[in-house]
Nucleic acid binder design. Structure first.
Length: 459
DNA sequence: GAGGCCTTCAC
DNA sequence: TGAAGGCCT
């Protein structure tokens, strides 16, 4: 009786799962394993919102496996140790897993290789599970270039590349009876959860993505920047935990066709783009991809302003609305992410790492590749070719929240102001303004802009 | 085919 | 400003 282990990581699904497919094809029995990784906790990636979502995902994965005659084996500890232990318990001849991208994932793979080498068990690392194309699957033509540093040429090449057909979910999964499992983690007892946190799990992810294809995809191109309309897919947490397959999403969107589908596929490609940058350049998670010689503000004033930013009391309604959405839902509209990140890094001139840390603390889709590199993109230290552009929060608010409905939804103390006037409470007559308990702007935009230009040495 | 130069273009 | 790609040597 041959046994293969499938080590689940950021790929908590049964549909379109190449490691599971390969394991089932090559062994009589499959041991599906998830390790609650002490290393992830130690690295600070175990923020409460994601732990809650993860608990949903694991429960749903276990149910899905049980419906197919199997179960999920949960262990806690060091990944390499736990996999090694399960190999001994089951006599498994191979371990199948998805390729990771971050420095952490790369070290994990090395340690697994060492451990499995000692017990004579093979390790099969599968590409294009977490991303649509593997990092490095397409590279620019020049000699020695290992990744694309500009999105558009990457997108062109990425689009030309053939896509594998998605795998069906297996009908049955035979799991060896012996190995014990730790209890499934639950949401119970987790502190600091966002009250409006989304539900995790592959079942929920597939329900959401089917609804998205029916009702959202076709109008995505016109509506994706409408903050009040909330017409983005909200699939990002499911992509982060792998409860949805990016390859399957692209496949289905292309089948649907049309400008909405094209725009959506482009966004999925951004995800691959950032993963291939990080895979080639793991240090970009912490250090400037392209240094602009910034000397970010530090000290009391900068700390107070950063606290106001985190708590949604900067006095700029659209910024505060977005930051409160983040606190409440553990998620933020993409346009709002750009505005709030520009505000912190350009207007307040505070280090992007402080913002990225706060986002990772709360975002249920918080992902090293996307989060860090998008922050760098906005800060101008990343791959943006216009590193010194500053987004004006008022102009942007009027463009992307033209009626002010997004602000009124998240900043209830301003709900009495109708129309776009809600974006500039400081322009209200003094007596009317006094009715609203809302802070003065933490900084004047003109001051922020001047400080930024000075710091970056711009005329 | 490696490397320099030029044009094009960047959510 | 700098990346990419085409073209030339």
């Amino acid at each position: 009786m041959s046994v293969a282990i499938v080590l689940f990581t950021s790929d908590l699904r049964l549909h379109d799962h190449p490691p599971l497919h390969a394991a089932l094809a090559s062994a009589d029995e499959v041991a599906p394993l998830f390790v609650l990784d002490d290393g992830v906790e130690a690295a600070g990636f175990g923020a409460p919102n994601r732990r809650a979502f993860l608990a949903d995902c694991l429960r749903d994965l276990d149910s899905g496996l049980r419906e197919r005659g199997g179960r999920l084996i949960i262990r806690q500890g060091d990944v390499a140790d736990e996999v090694g232990r399960l190999v001994e318990e089951t006599g498994a001849g191979a371990v199948h897993m998805a390729a990771g991208v971050s420095g952490y994932a790369q070290r994990r793979e090395e340690r697994l290789r060492e451990t499995l080498g000692r017990v004579g068990c093979g390790l099969n690392v599968h590409d294009a599970v977490i991303t649509t194309l593997a990092p490095g699957a397409v590279v620019p033509s020049g000699a020695g270039r290992d990744h694309f540093a500009v999105f558009t040429p990457y997108f062109r090449r990425w689009s030309e590349e053939g896509l594998r057909s998605p795998f069906q979910a297996p009908r049955t999964v035979r799991v060896p009876e012996g190995p014990a499992s730790a209890a499934l983690p639950t949401r119970t007892g987790l502190r600091g959860l966002s009250p409006g946190l989304a539900e995790g799990g592959e079942t929920e992810g597939r329900r959401l993505s089917a609804a998205w294809r029916r009702h959202g995809l076709a109008s995505y191109e016109e509506r994706h920047d409408d903050m009040a309309g909330d017409a983005t897919s909200r699939l990002s947490p499911h992509l982060h935990f792998g409860t949805l397959s990016p390859a399957e999403l692209v496949h289905r969107a292309r089948a649907a066709g049309g400008p909405g589908a094209d725009a959506f596929v482009r966004q999925v490609c951004w995800r691959d783009f950032h993963h291939q940058v990080l895979a080639a350049h793991p240090a970009a998670a912490r250090s400037d991809y392209r240094s602009r010689q910034d000397r970010w503000r530090t000290g009391r004033a900068a700390e107070d302003e950063t606290a106001a930013w985190r708590e949604g009391r900067t006095g700029y309604p659209v910024i505060d609305a977005a930051m409160r959405q983040l606190l409440h839902e553990g998620w933020m509209h993409n346009r709002a992410r750009l505005l709030t990140a520009s505000f912190l890094t350009k207007t307040l001139y505070v280090d992007w790492r402080a913002g990225a840390r706060h986002f990772l603390e709360l975002l249920v889709d918080g992902d090293i590749a996307n989060n860090q590199l998008n922050w760098q993109w906005v800060a101008g230290t990343g791959t943006d070719s216009r590193p010194n552009r500053v987004l004006n929060p008022v102009t942007q608010a009027k463009r992307y929240d033209p009626d002010g409905a997004y602000v009124r939804r998240w900043v209830p103390e301003l709900a009495g102001i109708s129309g776009p006037a809600v974006h500039e409470p400081w322009r209200l007559p003094e007596r009317e303004r006094a009715r609203y308990d809302y802070p003065e702007p933490v900084v004047q935009l003109s001051e922020g802009l001047a400080r930024f230009k000075e710091a970056r040495g711009l005329g």
